[in-house]
Design a protein around this nucleic acid. Sequence first.
DNA 1: TATGAATGAGCCTTCATTCAT
DNA 2: GATGAATGAAGGCTCATTCAT
Lengths: 208, 208, 208, 208
Amino acid sequence: MRKHRKSAPALKAERRQAILDAALEVFAAQGFAAARLEDVARQAGVAKGTLYLYFRDKEELFEQILRVEGEQVFGHITALAADDSLRADVILKQILQFIQTQILGGNRERLMRILISEGHRFPKISELYYREIIVKGRQAIMEIARRGAARGELRSDALTRFPQLFFAPIMLAVVWRGQFDQFDRLDVEAMLADHAKLILEPLRQETP
Amino acid sequence: MRKHRKSAPALKAERRQAILDAALEVFAAQGFAAARLEDVARQAGVAKGTLYLYFRDKEELFEQILRVEGEQVFGHITALAADDSLRADVILKQILQFIQTQILGGNRERLMRILISEGHRFPKISELYYREIIVKGRQAIMEIARRGAARGELRSDALTRFPQLFFAPIMLAVVWRGQFDQFDRLDVEAMLADHAKLILEPLRQETP
Amino acid sequence: MRKHRKSAPALKAERRQAILDAALEVFAAQGFAAARLEDVARQAGVAKGTLYLYFRDKEELFEQILRVEGEQVFGHITALAADDSLRADVILKQILQFIQTQILGGNRERLMRILISEGHRFPKISELYYREIIVKGRQAIMEIARRGAARGELRSDALTRFPQLFFAPIMLAVVWRGQFDQFDRLDVEAMLADHAKLILEPLRQETP
Amino acid sequence: MRKHRKSAPALKAERRQAILDAALEVFAAQGFAAARLEDVARQAGVAKGTLYLYFRDKEELFEQILRVEGEQVFGHITALAADDSLRADVILKQILQFIQTQILGGNRERLMRILISEGHRFPKISELYYREIIVKGRQAIMEIARRGAARGELRSDALTRFPQLFFAPIMLAVVWRGQFDQFDRLDVEAMLADHAKLILEPLRQETP
DNA sequence: TATGAATGAGCCTTCATTCAT
DNA sequence: GATGAATGAAGGCTCATTCAT
């Protein structure tokens, strides 16, 4: 029979998250410089001054957005990577599937769009992402690719040298959906299926 | 060739170009919203007011930057595409080569970076690029891919469906170089060579 | 009546009025185009940005100045006009008296000066004043004049045709005091007394 | 068989006049502060820089506009005033007639409008007009009024004390036409006829 | 003498940040 | 803690004025 359903710290965390969510949307739509903190506040349902109780300034808010997501994403990917009982091409297709369902279409896609758009103007963030996300993702893919190449499960060992090639169409999808989907909707699922066929499938034709 | 080295219209065109160059650099570095016209003017070696003799406002300057380059680029690509005496994979490798030497590393890479970063906030520009560049590039690749697939010169017909897959690593290279090259320099040439091998090469193994 | 002398809304209204007062003075002195909002802000004792919390832009501030006064003025005049127990010339002299004491010499004179000076460049304002003030004032004078002419209380029925003649010396006084008073002070009271005699007094001489 | 029809000084004077005419129109429409010299130049058919060959700066151009007209106007009025063979009311009606045909409706009305609007912000101009025009006009009217009052040709000696009353409806007409004519066209001729009857006509009724 | 491109001071307006309540 | 009114620095844009041609 307490007065407040939620404890104070829980409320605080919830409000912090509301601000981060609102900021993600506003920054994704407007970019860092053009985003107005008033819009963030309104969308988060708090007053402008409240933002400063949770974040030192606009830049820190921006950085915090990007620091939050992403960990769990690569938690899952590295978990998949660790399973060496599966064929490499199967794992990589699962990863593509995971990216499609877990990243594209939601907040994480917005996040990627922000990174792609603004990363180069925020070295701190680039560095963070390079260290926390890119390196880990690259490691995971390279590991899988190396194993797959050794076992002849992959068409090529290119991914051991350039795991970026694995992710390139995903980045393209994010950019495309951001600006060209209105003229020409991209069927990401089909594209990634073709992508998978191109780069992943071993040359089965040789085997017989 | 006496008193004036350059005619008045030539001077005007030159100055206009100087402004465009300066703007390209400043916009690429700062983004549209954060770019200060004073910086553009200083870098172009003119006064702030002079910008307005050449461009109505900041937005028009921004649009004009993007409207200028690009045409000749796709002039070359479509020229290559028209030559059906060459093998499809050869043509596509030439195009990759062309992109590497003519786009990456210079102003046009900056331009691509701006487009990738800001396109989605400027529908007019997205539309322009979709219509003028994307559609043409896509047509060219699809044409080549169709021919190549018919002749068995390509590993797959995926590019007839998703020519985007051909360009994805180039976009990735632009983004990567914009923010991660300082931590981990990307060997674009090598990556594109692997990209070419993955998606272009016909299944030569079958032929014998 | 403890902690805060004034309630928040009252403070807001007060500040709004302070801005309007300052703006009236600055606009009257400088004209719309030459007036600097910084001066308005300083004179109102607020920061420049504060103006925009109360008025959308310079033009709206200008319009609001003019929309405020005036109503009560013509409230009084129409009240006088409604009293048909008084002789017409008496009422009209009372109106002149009212104008002298309530309009000339204060903010409302400044307001008139602004209107006279700038009205023709602000059709919205001209229209507003025509509709709200001029029409009403004209109606009032015509009504009185008609009654007075019918009863032989006025020298002429000219005011039923051109009530403007009643107001013309007031407008002249405003303009004169704005620019020539420093060379030649105008005794408005005496002038209006002569004006009244000229246009109002019936031809008493005939009656005997 | 000269090359130019007009001599250089004549051309210069003509151009000067063209600039003054253009400036009068632009200043009357926009006011001093909002008027753009570029518009003046375009309307005068000269380049912006040319203005500075004829006038030191914007303010001097403005002053020169006002210094030009007006003299001949009061030349005529004082000539009429000097003729004491005519009845005062007749002379004053002629003056009203003259003002109607020679001032209202043309450049001189524009000039009056500028003076009324901006005079108080340009003490130099107020002073000039007071000295050159107002004083002379006042003298003329007072002289006529005094004569007329002495001879019983006028209804009242009010005009000897306040010659402004004679001019007030003219000022009102100028202001009215500037902003309210679009809503309610003022018949200036009829109004001035009523004005004349009110203030000028002697009390003829007494004479028989 | 005439031109009009170039200049840069100045002003309106926005918005991140502060702070009294 | 939360609010949102207030602040004022910053930047886009205009336009009077200059000056090379």
